[in-house]
Amino acid sequence: MHPGATATDEDLVRAAREGARAAFQALVARHQQAVRSFLRRAGGGAADADDLAQETFIAAWSGLWRFDGRSSVRSWLCGIAWRKHLSQARSRARSRVREATDEGLAEAPATPDARLDVTAALMRLPEDQRAAVALCLGADFTHAEAAATLGLPLGTIKSHVQRGRAKLEALLGGGDG
């Protein structure tokens, strides 16, 4: 049995702030699946997502004092993961633009009628929409929780989830035929 199996997340955060290593390890064990799954769905491959998840937990450890208990620990961690993902995506976009400019190449547009596998279908959604769908439909976050995690208005999250779901179903349905 893991050391923090019966403690609440808030208890573990408190203990980790006081320097208890086992408490932070228990938080990692408890939330690694949610954070890694979210990052895999937000974009990039499993290896990239895992690297980012590792950075997320290191950032959480450094910033334990910032957790104010207003959101759940899961939501707080996914928020850190989302900001790290955005920052990585921005820096990759910059380097892609630089490479394209250097080599005179443009990114090939996605073929609209290409047969899509499930992951590729998810990647076809716009970034914010994908994250909202990943949290609300893939990880059972409430709309309010997802709004707090992604730093977006509640109405935007609701519309992202609704449109994202419809788009995904259409993409996957189209892929079968």
Binding site: S37, D50, V118
Partner: peptide, 23 residues
């Protein structure tokens, strides 16, 4: 209908290698 999406992208419930790497 989206179950396949979630199943394909779900991380394992326990992953000692990942936990050790973080530690």
């Amino acid at each position: 209908p989206l179950a396949a999406v979630w199943a394909a992208t779900e991380a394992p419930a326990r992953d000692l290698a990942f936990e050790l790497a973080v530690e």
